[in-house]
Amino acid sequence: MKARTLAPILTVVVGALLVVVALGPVYWMMAASLKTDNQIFAIPPVWLFHPTFEHYRHVLADLGMASALAHSAFVGIATTALAIVLGVPAGYAIARFRFRGRRDVWFWFISNYMMIPVILVIPYFLIARNLHLINSPLMLILAYQTFAVPLVVWLTADQFGAIPKALDEAAKIDGAGELGIFFRIMVPLAVPGIAVAAILSLIFSWNELLYAMILTPSDETRTAPVTALSFLGGYSIPWGDLMAAGSLIVLPVIVFAVLVSRYLVRGLTLGAVK
């Protein structure tokens, strides 16, 4: 009887502890971004305060964070759009056709995902330098295909594979061509998988630092994480501004991550874990 009343309480306590440990640091950053500098440095720490949006105004208007966020968004959206154009047909072919080397092709697409960025970034830099593409978002968008395309191929192959075979046979009897079947029947049915792949690809390219730091380093072209990092370069660290920049970067990620929370682990492991 006693154990039975204790168990739910204990469950709630442990659960609350996990939530605090997981979200506490994130909350503390966001709280700091809304404090004055004196409140950030205060000992003991300030728990209750009047929020100020001064740091947000400052980083967005004066420190280039607004354009950096726009660059990040552009690179993320362009990366994702290109990965969908390249990856959806490939996922379709792997799921719906039987041809020699099919498994090898699938495995090859997936294995690109495991690539180590620091091995690729050196040649990317040399190539971009030769082609005068340093600071062009094009190189960055292409570099991001190494993880975005495998993601789209894997998720859409999964989705296309679940569509009954009878459907395209019926369409073929009705005289539809291969392209007609693909665009008018298959793609609409795969939209949920494409949407999940798109969100994951947006998150991963939004979060990336190494390629962005090397390929788009200038003040005018850099992405949000590179810009936030640049605040650390001065004599004294502008803590409030830094935390405001961090919060701005991470807010959309949190929204998207919660949206696809069921798929995030599967996305990170490309389906190795169901």
């Binding site: 996990l18 979200l23 994130v26 503390w28 700091a32 991550a257 995030l264 990170l268």
Partner: peptide
């Protein structure tokens, strides 16, 4: 309590989706 489980599962997704640069910033704070 299944409801606690589903809440914790969603919350746990947030740290691993976080931008690593921002994790570094939080650490330095």
């Amino acid at each position: 309590l299944p409801r606690v489980r589903s809440v914790v599962r969603v919350v746990l997704v947030i740290p691993m989706a976080m931008t690593p640069v921002v994790v570094g910033l939080i650490g330095s704070l």
